[in-house]
Design a protein around this nucleic acid. Sequence first.
DNA 1: CGGGTACTTGACTCTGGTCAAGATTTGTGG
DNA 2: CCACAAATCTTGACCAGAGTCAAGTACCCG
Lengths: 229, 229
Amino acid sequence: MLTRSIAPSLNVNRAAPGAFGPVEPFFGLTGHAGLIATEFTYRKDEEIYGEDEPAEYVYQVVRGAMRTYKLLSDGRRQIGAFHLPGDVFGLESGTKHRLAAEAIIDSTVRLVKRRRLEHAAGTDVRVAHKLWTITADDLKRAEEHILLLGRKSAMERVANFLLEMDRRLTVAGTMALPMCRRDIGDYLGLTLETVSRALSQLNDEGVLGFSGARQIVLRNHQRLRNMDI
Amino acid sequence: MLTRSIAPSLNVNRAAPGAFGPVEPFFGLTGHAGLIATEFTYRKDEEIYGEDEPAEYVYQVVRGAMRTYKLLSDGRRQIGAFHLPGDVFGLESGTKHRLAAEAIIDSTVRLVKRRRLEHAAGTDVRVAHKLWTITADDLKRAEEHILLLGRKSAMERVANFLLEMDRRLTVAGTMALPMCRRDIGDYLGLTLETVSRALSQLNDEGVLGFSGARQIVLRNHQRLRNMDI
DNA sequence: CGGGTACTTGACTCTGGTCAAGATTTGTGG
DNA sequence: CCACAAATCTTGACCAGAGTCAAGTACCCG
C-alpha cells in the first residue's frame, strides 16, 4: 500500500500499524482540539523540510524513521534526533524549523497545521500544556545528548546509543537499525569508522551479535550499561 | 548591601539594578498571574539546587551569574548553560531538576513557586504560552550547542563562546567573564588548558586583548565570526 | 547473479588531553 | 596598603584517542 512516487503523496487510508501497533494520533490532541490530521508518505532520503524553512506543519511518525539535523557551511552534519513511530517532530514555538528533517527509510507521517495547533492552544489550556511537555521532553533529551557529546568517550557514546535503540526498537530480542553508520556517527559526534570499530569490538567481546550489519542482538545489557557510565 | 551569610538569605528590598538595568520580573508573568516573587542571595559556588532534586521553584537571575550542569559518576562535568541577569532557569515541566545549579559569583535571584506558576498556566493561556516559549528557547540553544559539541573544533568552540559572551555581557567595549577557564572548558567540551591555549592564540593574533585573565576586549569580531563557521 | 552501496579494517596522522612547572592574579590578614 | 598565600591561568613536553585515507569485504536490491 506504500506509495512510491518521488513527490510526497497523500495517503487517504489509515496507515497500517507497524511493529509498534497503531499510533495514537498526536496523543489525542487531534481528538479534543478538533484538529484534522493528514497522512503523507516519504521515500528514503526524502526531505520533509529544510533548516530555517517556515514551520507550517507539525508531524508525527506513523511508520518508518526520520532524522533531524543541522549542517555547517563546509558540510559537517550534526543529527539532533532520530524519530520513530509515535514521535512528534517539527514542533516549533517560533515560525521556522531550526533543524532540517529527512526520511531515513520509506516512511509515513501524520501532520497538522501549526497555526491550528497554536490556535487550539490559545483556547484550551490542555493543548497548551501538551505542547509545553512535548517541547520539555525534547529539551530533556537534548540536555542528556549535550552531556554525551561534551564528556563521553567513543565507546560510551556507542553503548548509550545501543541501549537507547534497544529500548525504542527491539522486537523479539533483535534490533533492526534503520540508519547507516554515517547517520549514527553524525548523531554521536563521531566518524562512521569509529562507530564501526566500536561495534566490531563489542561483537568480539560477545556483548552483541550481528545478523547483518543493521540487525543487532544485545547479549549483555549490563556490560553495556557499565560502559555507558 | 550584599548579604554574606553561608545560607541563602532573603532579600526584602528590590535588588539594585546591575549593568543590565532593572530586570523585568519573570517577563511580566508575576504581574498578570498574581504571583509573588521573592529574592535570595547566594555566595560564589553555592548550590541553588542539585540534579534530580524536586523542582519546587523557578528562578530568574537578578544580579550575578549561574551555571547549570550534569555530572558523570567519575566526576566529569558538562555545563549546560550559563545564566545571566534576566535569564530564567530551573523551569521544569516534570517534578525534578534535570541539571544542578550553582552561583558562579555572589548572585541574587528572584523566585516563584513552580506549583503557583503551573496553576496560573492552567487558568491563563498567556502564562501557558510563556512557559512554552521559555522552554522552546532553551531547546533552540541546546540544539545549537549540540552542533557545537558534536562537530566544531576547539578554536571554533572558543570563538563561538566569545561571541556569545560578547553579546550577553560586554559593557563599554569590555567583557568581564564571571567564570573560570575550567567552567568554560566544561561548557565547551574541552579542557581548561585547551581553552587557555585558544585564548592565548587569539591574543597573539590580535583578535582580542586581555586586561586580566577574565577581562577581555574583542578587537576583531569579523575574524571571530569567520572562525565560528 | 551481478553491481553498487554500505561496512569493516589497517596504517598513519593529528588534534586535543594529560601531566608538570612556572607565572599571574586574587584574596586576606597584619 | 602591603605582603604573603592560595587559587587561577599559562605554557611546555609528551601521549592517546579519534580522525583520515585507502583497500578490501559484505550485503542488498534489482
